[in-house]
Design a protein around this nucleic acid. Structure first.
Length: 554
RNA sequence: GCGCCUGUAGCUCAGAUGGAUAGAGCAACGGACUUCUAAUCCGUAGGUCGCAGGUUCGAAUCCUGCCAGGCGUACCA
């Protein structure tokens, strides 16, 4: 509808110019918005004000000229007015909204989809938690966010690949192996002090126990290096499998699991370091190798090879990001926890050095999650290995509630996640509020079938009976869904869809409480069913993008 | 110290990339179920958009400075 109004305005402006009412044919983009106040009409444009200076006319005069030239062949506009400093307000004929319903029924689960991505290859990398322990709540937010972004981009015509980067190499894996090995020795009766820098969680105990069951005490007689290596590989493999399971029960599946170690095995890390050496952007100082990231906007240079000869994680990250672009992605999105933000200039420096364009790469930071229970903070300490895992949360509140709540905030806004609130089945908890719409409509449909009411499809005469303000309101809301999806994709902000759904749900509940769908009038009943089924489709459509289910019954 | 993020109703947050009189939910108060699911709805009340300047027809939104909170500032990831 907004697009139609835009077209009307642009045509009117061109007409007015031809007639000589407007001196210039240069026009800015037409911006049409939905005013907050109803008395300002259904749509409003600042076009007259925006073009006034190039026309060298007063905004109100421009507005008059445009209104005079509006050619509304479809009869969608009932009234126009000039208001304030030069706004043009449009009032829409309520019957003109009805075709929106037909479109929703026709496009069905593709309603709101678009081709703004034009099939371009885009990679979304998220979660990428180290395989040294289970996922916690914060990872859940990243997972819900990344998955929703990927869904939305796919829906908008991008060729999306979801990737998880596994840091299965380097120091922390060695520490993991040592942690498990030490617990293993303790289990076999040795008295050893367990160092602070080792991983403390119970899962380390469990893994050590499994090794003991499988292999007995054989590692006590082997070289420590080999034993640690075995423990590390065993532990990492099992932890990754656990992460994969947790994500799956959270409804998140990746297209690709990318191993850091593979970059070493294929020689890609060495190659990129050598390339950079030959470009003289890696130099030696204090027995270490430094990448001159300051040449590319970073505040200080960064070590890529330590003085003990080991590469840093940063070395493989250079190779990794270069590899992403070599795989042909036109755009690469990294989703990180906000605590890693200091790392952005470094990665941008790599890409600049490798000749990749800044515009093709974006980092989206997701703020951390404060876990609460009944308003009180839940104590968590990663060091002491005491934390609420993502699995705990899914088991307690359910994947739907968790995912939805994670998406009720802008990603850069910190989020309080209250376990008690997430379980509440009241208006305080928006998940059920939205899902309830779907269940209610499903129930109406079932009741209708019991009564033998048949679907009418698109019947102009019947649909014309939909003229209650609450009905028009619902249609207007659904009309704006495709735009919401589009903006949500452009800004990579899934929370727009969350808020949209809460808003649509509110309009529906208001309608439901005031009017009956199944009435004595078959024609009216048919029309209202047609309306309500459209609402059901849009609700399901939006929930699906967020990765939340749409239940038939609650 | 420097960098990034945040600051909007008592609480939790939106605010369509500069528009008209600032928007929800919760909490508070008052109402609505013999009905298609009350996990719902209707009404009332609630504001110096952190503070101070600036840009312009017009600022919660853009610029500058300050205040408060969070995070970061490794030869850890």
């Amino acid at each position: 509808m907004k697009q139609k109004i835009k077209n009307l305005i642009l045509k009117a402006a061109l007409n007015a110019h031809e007639k000589g009412d407007l001196p210039s044919s240069e026009f800015p983009d037409v911006e049409v918005e939905t005013p907050r106040v109803e008395s300002h009409g259904n749509f409003s444009t600042n076009f007259a004000m925006a073009t006034a200076s190039t026309q060298k006319m007063q905004p109100k005069r421009v507005a008059e000229a445009i209104i005079k030239s509006i050619d509304d062949t479809e009869g969608i506009v009932t009234k126009t007015e000039i208001a304030g400093p030069g706004f043009i307000n449009f009032f829409i004929n309520s019957l003109a909204w009805h075709p929106v319903l037909r479109r929703i029924h026709e496009e069905d689960d593709r309603y709101g989809a678009s081709d703004i991505g034009r099939g371009s290859k885009i990679q979304v990398e998220f979660v990428s938690s180290n395989p040294t322990g289970p996922l916690h709540v914060g990872h859940g937010r990243g997972a819900a966010f990344g998955d929703a972004v990927a869904n939305i981009l796919l829906f908008c015509g991008y060729d999306v690949e979801k990737e998880y980067y596994i840091n299965d190499s380097g120091r922390q894996i060695n520490t993991l192996g040592r942690s498990v090995f030490l617990r293993y020795r303790q289990l076999l009766g040795e008295e050893i002090e367990f160092p602070d820098e080792c991983y403390q969680g119970n899962y380390i105990h469990d893994l050590a126990g499994r090794i003991k069951e499988d292999k007995g005490s054989i590692f006590l007689d082997q070289k420590e290096d080999e034993a640690v290596l075995y423990c590390a590989q065993f532990a990492a493999k099992n932890i990754i499998a656990g992460i994969r399971d947790d994500l799956k029960s959270f409804g998140v599946e990746f297209d690709n699991w990318f191993s850091e170690q593979s970059l070493y095995d294929s020689g890609k890390v060495d190659k990129v370091l050598n390339d950079f050496r030959s470009q003289n952007i890696i130099y030696e100082k204090d027995d270490a190798h430094w990448f001159k990231t300051t040449d590319f906007g970073d505040e200080k240079d960064r070590v890529v090879v330590r003085n003990n000869g080991q590469t840093t994680y940063f070395a493989s990250d250079i190779a990794y990001h270069k590899d992403k672009f070599e795989r042909g992605f036109e755009r690469v999105i990294d989703i990180w926890g906000a605590d890693h933000h200091g790392y952005i200039p470094r990665i941008k420096a790599c890409l600049a050095a490798a000749g990749c364009s800044d515009e093709q790469f974006d980092v989206i930071l997701v703020q951390l999650v404060n876990l609460l229970r009944g308003g009180e903070p839940v104590a968590m300490s990663t060091r002491a290995g005491e934390f609420v895992t993502l699995k705990d949360v899914i088991d307690e509140v359910g994947a739907d509630a968790a995912r939805f709540i994670f998406l009720t905030r802008h990603h850069e806004s910190p989020l309080d996640f209250d376990l008690e609130l997430a379980k509440k089945k009241t208006n305080e908890n928006p998940v059920f509020y939205v899902q309830y719409v779907h269940a209610r409509i499903s129930s109406i449909i079932r009741k209708g079938r019991e009564k033998g009411i048949k679907d009418i499809g698109w019947d102009e005469k019947a649909i014309a009976m939909l003229k209650e303000p609450e009905e028009i309101n619902l249609i207007k809301s659904m009309d704006s869904y495709p735009e919401t999806v589009r903006l949500s994709a452009e800004f990579m902000e899934p929370h727009r869809i969350t808020f949209y759904l809460m808003n649509l749900a509110s309009s529906f509940h208001a309608y439901y409480n005031k009017h009956r769908v199944l009435t004595d009038d078959p024609l009216l009943t048919g029309a209202r069913l047609y309306l309500v089924v459209a609402v059901k489709k849009v609700i399901k459509n939006g929930l699906t993008l967020l990765g939340v289910s749409a239940p038939e019954k609650m």
